[in-house]
Design a protein around this nucleic acid. Structure first.
Lengths: 193, 193
DNA sequence: CCTACCGATCGGTAGG
DNA sequence: CCTACCGATCGGTAGG
């Protein structure tokens, strides 16, 4: 087994993900980030133009991962129920595999500066559209209850995106189980029968 | 109808709630807050000892509201299903009636300084215990599926606490409807049958 | 990747 | 509630 070697740039991003998650973007400083990495503060600027650029890279990397998970499912021929199960599992896997970055994605995106902020919102909207399509299809085929689609998708995302708040890698539940349980809750709820 | 008059202290807290929500605690400055209120920055310190104290007041005020909603339900004699419906409605009402403050509560509590931070976590845990009791009771009485209690409560809170992210006072859904729909989703899920 | 440094802004205090 | 001000820290740049 060959040990993976990290470039300095990757080291900085990795440390930034941890720090932005733990302290928030606004309360994180380039000086402290530099100390964490083991270089002088000004050296960070030979890898990144600004603090904002680091946030941008983190957020858009996670966005890419979400789309890579969604795309093949959208283009598949399964039933809406099957599609939903798969996309729930894949989406939560992205979160669980990138806990630091995903948490930054969910909590710190609003600090993105303006060209990036607009682009971010547009991407997020496109992603949510994928979920809306699946829900719409499920309603049309009478697999899902006839609820308001926007509302339904918001509830689904509440459940999915809450994962970053409670999931710990050391926990007793395996990542595979988490996806199954979330799907089951979303589809069947809490009540018996 | 008599117009409600606000003390300066209340004005400051109200502005702080909006600002902390919009920009985050770390990116909000006392200078900007003072400008918003219409006083000199140093004048804020005759009402509050520190920026941290303002955050503390906001977070613990909302915590009080949540407990005031939970207590009478916990001590009532309804079925677990009824209790859950009521607590879901009350909890989401607290969020919807205090959108700015509730958002700060959910997103910025981690910036509380240490004696307050510890106290905050303890309160939150007590509150979650109330939910755990209801779920436990529901499982015992065979009204709820026999799922892991901690996991179930986390999913419930994911749905409830997601409300602050999408609810807008200008929306088409009335606050009363929101509670009903959330309860229904939590209890019955998305699937038909 | 470092040394040296910039102007701006921060939370907060003294004293009235 | 204001004037005046503190030391600390911020993101970032010049130049090598």
């Amino acid at each position: 087994m060959v040990a993976k070697s990290f470039t300095r740039k990757e080291q900085i991003i990795s440390s930034a993900q941890q720090m932005f998650r733990k302290k928030g973007f606004g309360a994180s400083s380039m000086r402290e980030l530099a100390k964490e990495v083991g270089v002088e503060p000004s050296s960070l600027y030979s890898h990144f133009k600004s603090k904002d650029e680091i946030l941008k890279i983190i957020c858009f990397h996670i966005a890419d991962e979400f789309f890579e998970a969604l795309d093949p499912i959208q283009n598949s021929v399964s039933s809406p129920t099957e599609k939903l199960k798969r996309v729930v599992t894949e989406h939560t896997n992205v979160i669980m595999k990138n806990l630091d970055a995903a948490t930054v994605f969910f909590l710190e995106w609003k600090h993105l500066k303006e060209p990036a902020l607009f682009e971010f919102k547009a991407m997020r909207n496109r992603y949510e559209d994928g979920f809306r399509q699946i829900v719409q299809e499920g309603i049309t085929l009478c697999e899902f209850k006839n609820m308001d689609i926007d509302f339904t998708v918001r509830l689904i995302f509440s459940v999915l995106n809450g994962v970053h708040e409670w999931y710990r890698k050391s926990g007793t539940v395996s990542p595979d189980e988490v996806g199954d349980k979330l799907s089951h809750f979303i589809l069947e709820g809490l009540s018996v029968e």
